[in-house]
């Protein structure tokens, strides 16, 4: 965590190297640090760890929302899950929507940040406006996008594609149209947020590198490729990890885009979190939903490890120069 250790503690630490009765700290003093950090751990225990452990426990039981006592099933919920077509369908949808949203989102964010990193008129205005989609209520935004991607010919998206001579599309009914629409919502919401993170990363790349590159006759595109990208690599890794986790847990956008947790009549845009919700609260099977939650957790951890592992491999290839201002972590 923080490296700003309080001076008191450092002093105390050096004093304990020469033990003596006068230097022995009182009990209260010794436990005070634990007291200070305990609120986090108490809250984490109550609202993080306990639910997690309880979910794990519940995933071995048959437990209906409607009532009745939990009945031990062993691994049956997991056996059911891995034999369920709807689960694989949801998994695949999560993957495709994740790719459809994360990749364009991060590319757009990079491009935006790169442009905003140059001095230009109204720069601060543009920088602030980046954050507006992120600050907008996701629910409100999704409902607005829901009417933009309306199935009727009068929806804005249908009017726009009508301008280039295409027939109206019933967005929620087709698999790819629905997933595309959802990916647009996700991208719109998160691109600006990621752009700001990239921008912050770019600020720590020393300006003289750009100047030197410019003197050497490098275009903006080459500056981007050879100065910005290498300097940004840790930041990019961070955003990829966060976006991957976000994509795995995607729920609000597809849930509100359609009408409920089913994700379309054929489950064409039902993602894994929606399937979990459907099993828990539409079908009332909390044990099975808990099993899905555990699988989802394992999936997130695996994806994060994969991402960081890949990135570490990459970095071993081409170590990043640490800049004096601490641009690289």
């Amino acid at each position: 965590m923080s490296v700003d250790a309080p001076p008191d503690r450092e002093a105390a630490g050096s004093r304990t190297t020469s033990p003596g009765p006068r230097q022995r700290r009182s009990l209260a003093e010794r436990f005070a640090p634990y007291g200070y950090i305990s609120p986090f751990f108490l809250l984490f225990g109550a609202f993080g760890l306990f639910p997690l452990a309880f979910t794990l426990w519940l995933s071995f039981f048959e437990f209906r929302l409607g009532g009745g006592d939990p009945q031990f099933l062993g691994l049956e919920n997991y056996v059911w899950l891995f034999g369920s077509d709807a689960f694989y369908n949801a998994l695949l949808n999560t993957l495709t929507i994740g790719l459809l949203s994360t990749v364009p989102q991060l590319c757009i964010a990079l491009a935006l940040a790169h442009q905003l990193n140059y001095s230009m008129r109204l720069r601060n205005f543009f920088r602030v406006s980046m954050i507006i989609p992120y600050a907008t209520s996701l629910v409100a935004a999704t409902l607005v996008f829901g009417s933009i991607f309306s199935n009727s010919a009068g929806g804005l998206a249908n009017v726009l594609i009508g301008l280039v001579g295409l027939d109206p599309v019933s967005w929620t009914n087709g698999k790819w149209t629905a997933q595309f629409a959802i990916a647009v919502i996700v991208t719109w919401h998160w691109a600006g947020y990621n752009a700001l993170i990239y921008l912050a990363g770019m600020q720590s790349i020393p300006q003289d590198l750009y100047e030197a590159a410019a003197i050497d006759g490098a275009s903006r595109w080459h500056q981007f490729l050879h100065v910005t990208l290498p300097g940004l690599r840790p930041t990019i890794l961070f955003t990829i990890v966060v976006s991957t986790i976000g994509a795995t847990q995607l729920f609000t956008e597809p849930f509100l885009f359609g009408n409920g947790a089913g994700g379309g009549a054929l489950g064409q845009y039902q993602v894994i979190a929606m399937y979990m919700y459907e099993v828990a609260f539409t079908f009332g099977r909390l044990g099975r939903a808990s099993a899905i939650a555990m699988v989802l957790l394992v999936l997130v951890i695996a994806l994060v490890l994969l991402n960081t592992g890949l990135a570490r491999l990459k970095m071993r290839d081409r170590p990043i120069r640490t800049t004096p201002s601490g641009g690289a972590r």
């Binding site: 306990f50 639910p51 309880f54 979910t55 519940l58 609000t252 919700y277 828990a280 909390l286």
Partner: peptide, 15 residues
């Protein structure tokens, strides 16, 4: 939505 989030947590805590 709120219900889905809070109830999810509650369901676990309450069972």
């Amino acid at each position: 939505l709120l219900a889905s989030v809070t109830v999810g947590a509650l369901a676990l805590a309450a069972c």
